[in-house]
Nucleic acid binder design. Sequence first.
DNA 1: CTGTTAGCGCATTCAT
DNA 2: ATGAATGCGCTAACAG
Lengths: 334, 334
Amino acid sequence: MSATIYDVAREAGVSMATVSRVMNDTAVVKEETKKRVLDAIAKLSYRPNAVARGLASKRTKTIGVIVPDVSAAFMAELVRGIEDIANMYHYHIILCNSDGQLDRERDLVGTMWEKQVDGLLFMSPKLRQEHIDTFEEAQLPIVLCRTDDPEKRIPSVNINNKQAAIDVVDYLAAKGCKSIAFVGAKAGLKSLTDERRAGFLQATERNAITSQLIDVPSETYSGALKFLKDALQTSPVRAIVAANDELAIAAEHVAQDLKLRIPEDVMIVGFDNTKLTEMSRPPLTTVAQSMYDYGAVAMRFLTKLLSDEPISTYTVVLPHQILERESTAPKFVK
Amino acid sequence: MSATIYDVAREAGVSMATVSRVMNDTAVVKEETKKRVLDAIAKLSYRPNAVARGLASKRTKTIGVIVPDVSAAFMAELVRGIEDIANMYHYHIILCNSDGQLDRERDLVGTMWEKQVDGLLFMSPKLRQEHIDTFEEAQLPIVLCRTDDPEKRIPSVNINNKQAAIDVVDYLAAKGCKSIAFVGAKAGLKSLTDERRAGFLQATERNAITSQLIDVPSETYSGALKFLKDALQTSPVRAIVAANDELAIAAEHVAQDLKLRIPEDVMIVGFDNTKLTEMSRPPLTTVAQSMYDYGAVAMRFLTKLLSDEPISTYTVVLPHQILERESTAPKFVK
DNA sequence: CTGTTAGCGCATTCAT
DNA sequence: ATGAATGCGCTAACAG
């Protein structure tokens, strides 16, 4: 398994160029010599050295994936989507965690350049001008995934978070909710949450619904419990829209601790449709977006950029839908 | 950002060798010329081409990570652990999913060789002889992570799953449980589960506890519900030990549907201490092992192998502990 | 302390 | 249809 192209050439009695040709199918080779080459490859268990190949061809067949944190609930599924499609197109991925820190993100883009990745899939809680500058420097094909670029300067794959939040409020309004709270990280930290909050505020106002904002320092289960409890104790609401599923489950538990019935006393809606949603009690109504598809579509988008396939739009908007479960719809007793 | 080492050399008025030396700190360079080189690097925004470097040095500073599925509950945390330590030692990771299929796994090891990774972190539900053969062919430094090699042929990091299960049974026995069920994938599919089941059986016998095995086709929440329900309806038990947290939560829900109180009527214990455990109701007692540490330790182990640091043992066994939560311990009413 | 030289293993002209 | 030659950008002897 460590023969070189020269060894194969010698074994087959041809030149290395011919070996390269049959491997890459880059020119017509006589059927008979092709067979000889293939036999030699098999006999020597030859495997082409991708690094040498990358240096010579200037294409490494690897793409860089920069995420805030793989261990976040939905991120793993998203990465799986990326990986599957990457594989389908014979790419491999180098995965990096940035923790959403600008310095680290910029550094990683540079490192990815060093690694000569063919393209980049980039995720970040909030896109800044510095990001754009860094991308420009790096001169790499880049697709943003699940990170909003308000000015649409970079190709991206997203859902319409604002509209999704509007849909949720309308859905709750149709159920008769007159006061709804939104729980999420405070404004300015996460674009996603900001978008969702904006939709929430717009729709509550339009529906003449009393709205309340519950800001939490970090969008995690344990970090949110206290803030939810304080908020729900002081001013009870009829429904809670959470910026993500983890917060929604925290809301469920706080409500239950306060002896509120879900959904009779308070309805709860999450975002993202992570696996948590069907494993919670009651199962959580949530805004579903296939995280897997998210990654898959972004990766597919990138392969198009890399092969100069025609692109219809540089701003892909994925569909979302409200998945109704028992946290907003009473279960029928059978 | 696409200057070469020659450009830097010219700019600094030195030879490329000197540039290489200051970059890699591989020989003493006069302070003044070093400064000139550094200035030139900065001026040209020079970044070394890692591919060329890899070809010349035969070390790519990247390691391959082969997992069954990143999107499995605990896997993402584990990968995060790997990535953090890899970064600390200036490595990058190429991540691949095998779905635990032998053919795919073998193929991936070959691909990793092509990519000239410096080493491999390998995870699989069940290690076979074919794996060993493949590893041998590839001639790569390999560390098994969370995958048992009964014959200790390959360096590995693991926990003692059998002992952990024994500990759990002893723990439940001390609480007076006289009949305990074990739920997990049927024998022969997953080494992890097999080990845990073996410990369960040994300890129940020693403690004269009535044991019951609940086999499920796949160790997932939804896939297990039916089997759990059937089992619990026909022969009620005092406690359930699940092969992982997801199954344990399924057990909680089935028990609750059968109007059983947890832990008063039935105690439930999971495995792995995933994030699910504290987000379930009641919070789940589980066998804790830091998934992050799992990956981190395995990666650290690999760096040792790669730098020929002395190794005390080739079979690292990580500690585990029972984390008691309310699924086995009634909550005090305050 | 620094420069020159020779590869690393392949893709890719340019000939033939 | 095939071979010979060149270079990708760097590391690593080997000189000096």
